Amino acid sequence: MENQELIHGDVTPKDGECRFTELERVEKFKIKLWVEYLKEALNYKSIYALQKHFSGDDKFIHKTEGTTHPTDWNKYFNGTRIPSLKTLDKAYKEVPSSEYIYNMPFWRLVTERVSKEYINDALSATSPDIKKILFNPTGISGLDWKRKDLRKNDRIRLFLRRKGTIDALNVIMLLMAEDEFNFSIISFVDNRSCLMNTMVNVCSFPPFDEPNTARFLYECIIKRFFIPLNLPEELSFYDKYQYPSPYHMVRWVNENKDLLEYLEAIEVIDDTISRERKLDILNKYYELPRHKKSELHAAFRFYFCLRDVYEKNIETYSVAHLPLFQ
Score class of each variant (00 low, 15 high):
Y92G: 04
L288F: 04
H297Y: 08
Y243L: 08
A125K: 14
N256A: 02
K90L: 13
H248W: 06
E2C: 06
I119C: 07
I133G: 02
G142W: 06
N230Y: 02
D121N: 14
E311C: 08
D72W: 00
F237L: 11
R25N: 07
E27H: 10
F60N: 14
T21F: 02
I314K: 07
R161E: 08
T138E: 13
E267V: 04
M104Y: 02
Q242E: 12
N3R: 12
I314A: 06
K28H: 10
F225C: 01
F302G: 06
F226E: 00
W73H: 08
V250Q: 14
T12A: 12
L33W: 06
F225R: 01
F304L: 07
R307M: 10
T67H: 09
F181R: 03
L174E: 04
I266W: 02
N120G: 01
L88P: 05
K45T: 15
G79M: 08
S127I: 12
D121P: 00
E178V: 01
C220G: 02
R162K: 13
R113W: 02
L229R: 07
D308N: 14
P246D: 05
I7M: 10
K131M: 12
M176H: 03
R19T: 09
A122L: 05
P96V: 08
Y310T: 09
T71V: 00
D271I: 04
P13W: 03
R157E: 09
I166V: 14
L134E: 12
R251K: 14
A41E: 15
F60V: 11
K52E: 14
K32M: 13
E36I: 02
L263T: 10
K32T: 12
T64N: 12
S97C: 07
K163T: 12
C305I: 14
I266Y: 02
P289A: 12
Y118T: 07
I119K: 05
I47E: 11
F29D: 05
D10W: 07
S84D: 09
S124M: 15
P128G: 06
Y118I: 09
Y241T: 13
I222R: 04
F135M: 04
K131C: 10
S318V: 11
G66S: 06
N197K: 15
L229C: 02
F302V: 02
A49I: 01
I82R: 12
E233W: 05
K240Y: 10
V189I: 15
L279M: 11
A177Y: 02
F302W: 08
C220R: 03
A298Q: 10
F205R: 07
Y102A: 11
D10H: 07
L282T: 09
A125H: 10
D149N: 13
E287Y: 01
S236L: 09
C203G: 03
T68I: 06
Y118C: 05
E22D: 15
